[in-house]
Write a protein that binds this DNA or RNA. Sequence first.
DNA 1: CTATTAATAAAACGAACGTTCAATTAATTC
DNA 2: GAATTAATTGAACGTTCGTTTTATTAATAG
Lengths: 214, 214
Amino acid sequence: MARTTGSDGEKTAAAVREAAVSLIARLGYEAMSMRQLAAEVGVQAAALYRYFPTKEDLLFTLMREHMEGLIEAWGRARPASDDAAVRLAAYVENHIAFHIERRHATHVSNMELRSLSHERLTHILKMRTAYEKELRAILRDGAEAGRFEIDDVGLTAMALIQMMTGVIVWFRPGERLSIHEVTTTYLSMTMRLVGVKTDTREEAHVHEYAQLRA
Amino acid sequence: MARTTGSDGEKTAAAVREAAVSLIARLGYEAMSMRQLAAEVGVQAAALYRYFPTKEDLLFTLMREHMEGLIEAWGRARPASDDAAVRLAAYVENHIAFHIERRHATHVSNMELRSLSHERLTHILKMRTAYEKELRAILRDGAEAGRFEIDDVGLTAMALIQMMTGVIVWFRPGERLSIHEVTTTYLSMTMRLVGVKTDTREEAHVHEYAQLRA
DNA sequence: CTATTAATAAAACGAACGTTCAATTAATTC
DNA sequence: GAATTAATTGAACGTTCGTTTTATTAATAG
């Protein structure tokens, strides 16, 4: 046999990406074989090489697209407000929503970095740094404006990122808590963590904003 | 050749553990070959099987010992105080100190769980759960005693664990911050996160305690 | 000094790996 | 409907993997 009836390059490519994210998240990149991936897609291993020249190219593509998606999502969610608390709330909500929606892809992007070549690792890390820089800017602005109480902006940013991204480790849709409940709780933990000043006029807006997006 | 001059089973076994932790942390369990590990130890691959019957046995042993060490360390560090804030401070300090001291082993224990058999995975997860349960108990006590302000004990515990363990991802000894500075900052972030009540008599003790251990 | 045990080397096993290549068939174009 | 292009198969390549077996040497015990 050769070309199969109804075969379509675009559909196969999409199926490969989807199956790869799921398999790598479950087994790990090194543990997943190209034959396993091919079987999941319903195709022979050789067919995969029509879409991705090497296994590492496949991994890199998945990671790059995930990071691009994250940065793009934040670009759309970023509010114009000059109140750091409003921007922080939006950052937290976008981050949690994005990562919960793409648990598998996040797992891959976070856990398989060591399987990239030095060059490609650098590329992915640059994207990640750019994204995290946005959070540091928010925290710095808030601290300078007296809106937050922060000891160390860099440390606080890392702590918040780890805390938020960690949601994907234990969160399972349809269990005890809804995405909305998780987000609300994480939002309030975040605000306490950065020592946001309460009882001011602006504070009401943050809560309004949170309610609005709920 | 066969047995080499000066060879010693105990020393070799220890060297294998140490090299394995380092190699698995750097390359990943699946990516590390037994031949690579043997070369690092300065021995042939077959010699490894005198100490660990399979590659997975080796991984499991490393993880189990790491978790045992963590639980044991907390057993020694756990204060008798019935003030939840004091106990929380001790938990945070012990957790960060332990994980920074064993960055590689922590990496292995957190990242390579999927390479364990179901049975062994369960065993490790039970140990982990037991350890995390201690934190939840502290948070619950503090919340019930009105010492903390917590929305959801389970969520807060996970958030704190992720935040604290995340230190190993970016912390490098000898860089901008010392272990002590990191711990101090994380301690204050933790206390704010759980909404600890300030300006009480007990609060002074927490700070005293932190200073004492610095 | 001899017998025994501990620790290793050397070689080999079958299986699985990522990848390539040639052949083959489906879809599309003219 | 013939020619071309797109998509895939099936088989094979060389390499590496975890592991086993056997032989060999160092250390130890009697």
